[in-house]
Design a binder for these strands. Sequence first.
DNA 1: TAGATTGTTAATCGATTAACAATC
DNA 2: TAGATTGTTAATCGATTAACAATC
Lengths: 207, 207
Amino acid sequence: MAKTEKISEAVIRRLPIYLRYLTHLQEMGITTVSSQQMGSTLDVNPAQIRKDLAAFGEFGKKGIGYDVQYLIGKIRHILNIDQELRIAVVGAGHLGHAISNYNDYLRDNMRIVAIFDTDPQKFGEEIAGLKIQPLAELKQTVKTRHIRLGIITVPDFAAQMVADELIDAGIEGILNFAPITLRTDKEVRIDYADLTSSLQSLAYYLN
Amino acid sequence: MAKTEKISEAVIRRLPIYLRYLTHLQEMGITTVSSQQMGSTLDVNPAQIRKDLAAFGEFGKKGIGYDVQYLIGKIRHILNIDQELRIAVVGAGHLGHAISNYNDYLRDNMRIVAIFDTDPQKFGEEIAGLKIQPLAELKQTVKTRHIRLGIITVPDFAAQMVADELIDAGIEGILNFAPITLRTDKEVRIDYADLTSSLQSLAYYLN
DNA sequence: TAGATTGTTAATCGATTAACAATC
DNA sequence: TAGATTGTTAATCGATTAACAATC
């Protein structure tokens, strides 16, 4: 990263969108793209795209635009997904089940490699090629399998406990689907993906 | 709504979080809460909470705080969830399956009442008490059952087509789980909930 | 009354957009 | 060279936070 200004969360939320479109262009054999073209497809101001990218280095060529393949490599590097990134899912209910089947969509080196639950009836059951493990095995599995991210898909009343376990196990980032604000005093990034809240926000815009 | 200043999306994203906590307080029998208390639990600046709420009216009492039950009613009204709000899910794969089972978690009058797919093999199959219907029936079902929101859980290549169908059917808001930016010239709100993008953003914060 | 807490104004901080010199 | 497009500065716009008078 060329610059030292701090990067806002808004920028980081847009980078995956850029990456997804660039990958699409690459698949179509397109080698160069301008901020103008990207912006009009993605509904983002071209100046915004240039500024977002420029915060990390000079990736484009004046008068030409951006080399698709080169830019893909740069964004993947920025996002830490130029290395294999292993993920654990905790909660083998319907949602955990669905997410565990997501590996085909998680390109770019992200991979769900373990799934946990507390219900003994589920232990050993297979989901998407993964055996459901007891939560008690979390810490050891995280260590031996070098898992860095966790996804929480347990009911709300269990979510804080699971978060504590994940953090104690050395997980570095959490994506929480449970409808509860998690608390920690550790340096762990926690993002939220709560369906109920999303739908309620959406409902505001009716009429 | 007492004021006419325009409300930012950030405010609308926080209201469901406030509502969730207030509901929790109500269940615990707590009748009054201050912005201070809410803020410290939810990790939100108390001034922010007061300003968010004040944009819609004077809901609190100086020196006292907010009446929990009263504020719940107000926020539900603001979010349009003081009426039953019906939702259709399009895409009966793993994720659509999981979401269709979400009705128990969708309190506050939101309800998934129909699920659609294009695979004839799935027609008639039951998920969470709902029979999977052919996409061809979408328009009629939306009209007769007064469905106002749509959730897209189809693969990326089908998402734009499904969005067009939903909009044509008269849907007023869409929550899209497919990893693609949807385009429309109609006045329809489209929100995004893309797991891959969320995980990629999360990955940035590693180290 | 004294203490607490709102609603709101002003101050600050941050993010987006416009404009354009540099340059491919 | 002429046209196109970046990187970046300046201008604008918007959101967050602090502070405090009003008042329960």
